[in-house]
């Protein structure tokens, strides 16, 4: 693999990382902790929304994030022909 190809592969990977980790941070530390009090004014059925993010929602999002990353990286790997 050539150097410039290598660096653009790595750059795309870092972009994915930054975006996904931003979501990771926003749902857990954001919605689950920092903004939980104001989100609690919104209801999701029997849940206050801030509480739901803190004890349920963020965990679902975590699982989802990993699956999205797996799909993105599998695609990226075959695009740059580095899949193993």
């Amino acid at each position: 693999m050539k150097d410039n190809q290598h660096s653009s592969y790595w750059k795309t990977n870092i972009q994915y990382l930054v975006i996904l980790l931003l979501v990771w941070f926003l749902v857990s530390y954001g919605a689950g902790i920092m903004w939980a009090d104001s989100l609690n004014n919104i209801r999701l059925g029997g849940f206050k929304l801030g509480f739901w993010f803190a004890q349920q929602g963020s965990i679902y999002v975590f699982v989802l994030l990993i699956y999205i990353y797996v799909r993105l990286m599998n695609r990226l790997d075959s695009k740059y022909d580095v899949n193993d």
Partner: peptide, 16 residues
Amino acid sequence: AQYLMGWTGGYVLLAL
């Protein structure tokens, strides 16, 4: 929530 998020969120870091 500190345990619920704390003991699951690390897997995102592990995977990524």
